[in-house]
């Protein structure tokens, strides 16, 4: 019995030397000094020992327990010391050494820009309405007041599919019809984001696919003044609180009156630079009051309802904001480009 107590002592002390931190110390303590440990059990179960041996064994066991408790305290102290000294050593390190490498993911810059646009419009009560990319000629053109063979069709170079009358949408505007037909005659305030397609050569300035975000507000009292105010609010949120806007007359078949909104160049504060072609202004979006024919096609009554619509290109906005000079970078997905955002 006494020998087995000695074995416990030897094993425990040797194992104590192998402990290296708080956790291994905890495990050591639970193995050798907890109430389930053989040593403490033996102390608790002294009644099982022959009465004449009890004092000696009890004494010896208590002694070992004290030795181990003492050794445990010492080891705990030593380990604290060693951790502290490691800390001391760290203080001598070259603190400019790079940290451990981590893998950081990122959203594509187009997604980041879209999300910024979503957030701003959401704050103004415009909700997101998505619709399909492969569309009918009817939805993409005819119902938007662009009849077949109409000169306005020159404004869009279209990808046709091998199914006659089915095309890749050239703008998110067919979503206007979808949204109107889903909501008429109730008021609408939505933005319509998504990928659009144009039959063009891929160059630094033109792409075959691009995101567009259109907006549509319809009600019984939506006016051109509201269009100006709302879009100027958007411009301030998107480009900075001091952003100024100007509206120029323009033409889109699905709005009338139609306008282009320019913002004062945020790169040169309107002084004139390369990006704004020294004009001090950047063309940002097209907009206008919803054309009566489109209102009718969407299920609204032009003599009761009015509305405005607008459309912008997130990639173009990102190009301006971050000085990106080649639109092909977006779908080129070179990580050396994407990792900058």
């Amino acid at each position: 019995m006494l020998e087995s107590l000695d074995t416990i002592k030897t094993t425990a002390l040797s194992e104590l030397q192998k402990t290296s931190d708080k956790e291994t110390l905890r495990l050591w303590y639970s193995k050798h000094l907890s109430k389930n440990s053989p040593l403490i059990k033996s102390l608790r179960n002294l009644s099982n020992v022959a009465p004449q041996d009890r004092p000696a064994i009890g004494k010896h066991a208590n002694h070992i327990r004290n030795v181990l408790e003492e050794a445990y305290k010492e080891r705990t102290h030593d380990l604290h010391q060693s951790i502290a000294s490691t800390r001391q050593k760290l203080a001598d390190l070259d603190i400019t050494l790079p940290g451990r490498s981590l893998n950081r993911g990122r959203l594509h810059i187009a997604t980041q820009t879209l999300r910024r646009i979503y957030t701003i419009w959401a704050d103004m009560g415009f909700q997101i309405y998505r619709s399909r990319e492969i569309e009918t000629d009817e939805l993409n053109f005819e119902l938007l007041n662009i009849p077949l063979h109409h000169p306005a069709r020159d404004m869009w170079d279209t990808f046709h599919t091998s199914t006659p009358g089915v095309i890749l949408r050239t703008h998110t505007s067919p979503g206007q019809i979808h949204a109107m037909r889903a909501n008429a005659p109730d008021p609408i305030r939505v933005i319509l984001p998504g990928m659009c397609y144009r039959y063009e050569q891929i160059t630094a300035r033109s792409e075959i696919q691009f995101n567009q975000v259109e907006g549509l507000a319809i009600g019984t009292n939506i006016r051109f003044t509201d269009l100006k105010g709302t879009l100027t609010d958007f411009a301030r949120r998107m480009f900075g609180n001091s952003t100024r806007t100007r509206f120029r007359a323009s033409h889109f078949p699905f709005t009338e009156p139609s306008a282009e909104m320019d913002v004062e160049c945020f790169l040169c504060s309107g002084e004139g630079c390369r990006v704004c072609k020294k004009t001090g202004w950047l063309e940002i979006l097209g907009c206008g009051m919803v054309h009566p024919a489109v209102l009718t096609n969407g299920g609204y009554e032009p003599n009761k309802h009015t509305g405005f619509a607008f459309g912008m290109g997130p990639e173009r906005i990102a190009m301006l904001k971050y000085g990106i000079d080649d639109i092909r970078h977006f779908w080129g997905n070179d990580l050396r480009f994407l990792e900058q955002f």
Binding site: G125, N183, D186, P187, I188, R189, A217, G219, T220, N221, I222, R223, F224, T225, D226, K228, G229, T230, T232, D233, R246, F247, R248, A249, E256, P257, S258, A259, M289, H291, P292, P302
Partner: peptide, 26 residues
């Protein structure tokens, strides 16, 4: 609509004030 556009265009978009939408929020 065509004629209102003509009026707005010549009157000048810059002479049209900015307002917040006062219509019912959907």
């Amino acid at each position: 609509a065509d004629i209102i556009e003509e009026i707005a265009r010549i009157w000048g978009f810059e002479n049209i004030p900015e307002t917040q939408i006062s219509d019912l929020m959907p």
